[in-house]
Design a protein around this nucleic acid. Structure first.
Lengths: 225, 225
DNA sequence: ACCTCAGCTGACCGACCGTTCAGTTTTGTC
DNA sequence: GACAAAACTGAACGGTCGGTCAGCTGAGGT
């Protein structure tokens, strides 16, 4: 799956690109509107993530240009909450969905997946790691045949870990992936959530699916512990 | 879509039947295990909702019997939380999903829909009433191009109304449909939620999609107000 | 015109969730 | 074995949500 990201804020662009690539997508980036339009018309993408505020040519215009040229690649627009450019307008100009800044990667990737799924008419796949199983569509979790109930945030963290099962993920990566990118609270929050997940999906079952890699981060065992 | 409901508790059986029929399903009911097994093997159903505690032959046995006879109709099992029969066993005997009593209709119908969808490999459809639009899969709501955020319960009530748009629904029906069937709090809760919905999806847009039918209940206008 | 009752509405309360914090335990190094 | 850094963990706090309640409003009947 090949995506185009048009975003002038370098920091966000790089972070989003990295995050999406970690999910298995191929991502090209354009930092301004003209480059974006050029790439969009030339390359063949499965989906375009498009910021509204852009130098060169803004998101609305690019979206309108593409639609006028009969290009119906799904477009996810990024809008600023306090901007004078209105998010309502996004859908009018032909965007398929929009997302208000600041957002977290899990939300972004969920939207991307939802759009691609809608375009392809597919079903979301359940994820498994050994006998640990989650259904992102229904947001439900099982350990073997026992269903486990998690809070929203706990589920987000677990889904993030499971999509990268076997990889060591630093606390920073988890924080960047699950929390909104403008979150600047105590990074200890990751440890707290790891603990809560362990008490729910590991300890009652005498397993240790979430492993600590000291100095590096955490790893979810691909075999579910 | 034709469903078979096997449930010995008359009260629950009738309520569930009525609820599912209101959703557009055709529902046959068996009050004991032997009848249930007979109907299941004879009739051709798209899905079976199966209580575990049953006179005659229990849910596990029926499920096992069907699977042994190479009948793979999706089965949703109903389990009692405090029962000595374990919900974990449900999936082992070949059930596709299970639901713990007490449950609410919205949860039941969501599970039924999820199973049927899984079996058919389809996408959930967005629902609309005029420019009011909800996406049950993503649990998101829009009025025109503006997205509206609702709490979980508010969404459940709105989805319930929208699936029956144009019909007058009594407070009792809404209560029975959205709240767990053992809820015995103040029925005024429905009025409170209607109010909360109005302040979010109607008043800011100067619309009146949720109409009061004095002495009878509420109706969601099919044209969205 | 008044009375009654269904419906409306704002305030309040307890529970739960996300987050913070401080104190403790574990791990690796010298 | 002593020390420092990293990770762990239980408690506490503030905000939000679901539900309760009591007083108000307005429609319909007499």
């Amino acid at each position: 799956m090949k995506l185009l990201l048009v975003e002038d804020d370098r920091k966000i662009a790089v972070g989003v690109k990295r995050g999406l690539e970690a999910e298995g997508f191929t991502v090209d980036v354009a930092f301004d509107g003209l480059d974006g339009l050029w790439l969009a018309t030339e390359g063949s993408y499965d989906l375009i993530v498009l910021d509204i505020m852009l130098p060169g040519r803004n998101g609305y215009q690019i979206c309108g240009d593409l639609r006028k040229a009969d290009d119906w690649t799904p477009i996810l627009m990024l809008t600023a909450k306090d901007g004078d450019l209105d998010e309502a307008e996004a859908l009018d100009t032909g965007a398929d969905d929009y997302l208000t800044k600041p957002f977290s990667f899990v939300v972004l990737t969920a939207r991307v997946r939802a759009l691609l799924r809608r375009a392809a008419g597919q079903e979301p796949d359940p994820l498994t790691a050994g006998d640990l199983r989650i259904d992102p569509g229904q947001r439900r979790v099982w350990r073997g045949s026992d269903e486990v109930s998690l809070t929203a945030r706990q589920f987000d963290v677990l889904e993030f870990l499971m999509r990268r099962a076997g990889q060591v993920l630093s606390k920073g990566e988890i924080l960047d992936g699950v929390w909104s990118y403008d979150f600047d609270g105590d990074p200890n929050i990751v440890e707290v959530y790891i603990r809560r997940l362990r008490t729910r999906i590991d300890e009652p079952f005498d397993r240790r699916s979430i492993q600590t890699v000291r100095g590096a981060g955490y790893r979810l065992a691909v075999d579910g512990g």
